[in-house]
Design a protein around this nucleic acid. Structure first.
Lengths: 170, 170
DNA sequence: TGCGTCATGTCAAACGTTTGATGGTTGGCC
DNA sequence: GGCCAACCATCAAACGTTTGACATGACGCA
């Protein structure tokens, strides 16, 4: 027990590593979103485009797993990106009603611009920390991720955990 | 320029620190949510309760700033927690239509239980990394947060950045 | 060949959040 | 005292996401 009998909860609760992690991620995400905004792209769009770029021909369901969202959310994003002409859905050669996702030229162009913005942010961060600390940070973060995955393997159905109004597990 | 002229985007994009950060935070959050679920509490509820516990008498708007959400979102959460009898709204002594937020005994109890779950997760992580690496990770994360805040001070109105359908900045 | 299972994609509905706008209150300043 | 800006809280509406359910197609096995 690292806990306390006096107060209900130690005041050190906001000094935890997981809080520092959350704060940092929140700050980074906010900055990305802001910078990406001038390009007319949301962070979610960028994530999707780059995932498709790295693995062309990806299916929507697989994409959903990688982005940690539901297939419907992916469908929604895909529809929008397709409407903008940045993404393309092709029939899968083998499985008939599976749809392959591919970037269009416009999509590649938008991705390139967006990525340069993201890369700039990355660089600004690795600049503040020196290169050594930066790679060390990444190594530690990966360790955390691995530790979590080890304790709790990722849900293959990728079902986000929610709750009912009354607080009983849904 | 750290970039490449060949491919639209380097394949090293998923090796960035900010991606490692995101993955780690996602994993931690998912685990928290899952563990908290058996207690009938969502992570957002826990965050709100602990914030009110640390600073009793907090106003909704201030709380919204700290949690990085809109006042309406806070109001929604507060209404639910108040409905469960874990949170209490009192009139502000000075400002009339400002509402002070306070924990009830039931709220303190729920918070205590929830925090032990969170503390356990924290401990599992700091166990995998040794204590030294753990405090080092926290220090690096704080550095990242500071670096971001330095580049882009937090929006005092705390307005999340969004986008219109057509991609033009909203 | 026929059956059962699994995975993908899509639809309708509910939920939570953000957005935009409004009314009410406080405090500073002329 | 009176005016104006800033802040808090709240309402209605729009948006995005999750949930639950369903139909379709592919594969393994008897």
């Amino acid at each position: 027990m690292t806990l306390h009998d006096e107060g209900p909860v130690g005041a050190d609760a906001l000094d935890r590593v997981t809080w520092a992690l959350r704060r940092a991620e929140l700050a980074v995400t906010a900055l990305k979103e802001q910078r990406l905004r001038s390009l007319g792209m949301a962070a979610a769009h960028y994530s999707l485009l780059i995932a498709v770029h790295v693995d062309p021909g990806l299916a929507g369901a697989e994409l959903a797993r990688r982005l940690n969202v539901t297939p419907q959310a992916v469908a929604s994003l895909v529809a929008r990106l397709e409407g903008r002409g940045q993404l393309e859905r092709r029939p899968h050669p083998r499985h008939r009603h599976v749809q392959e996702l591919h970037l269009t030229d416009a999509g590649r162009d938008a991705l390139r611009k967006a990525d340069s913005v993201i890369a700039e942010i990355e660089q600004q961060i690795t600049e503040k920390l020196d290169t050594k600390s930066s790679s060390q940070l990444k190594a530690l973060l990966d360790q955390v991720t691995d530790a979590i995955q080890q304790v709790q393997p990722a849900d293959p159905l990728n079902r986000p955990v929610t709750l009912r109004k009354d607080g009983t597990p849904g």
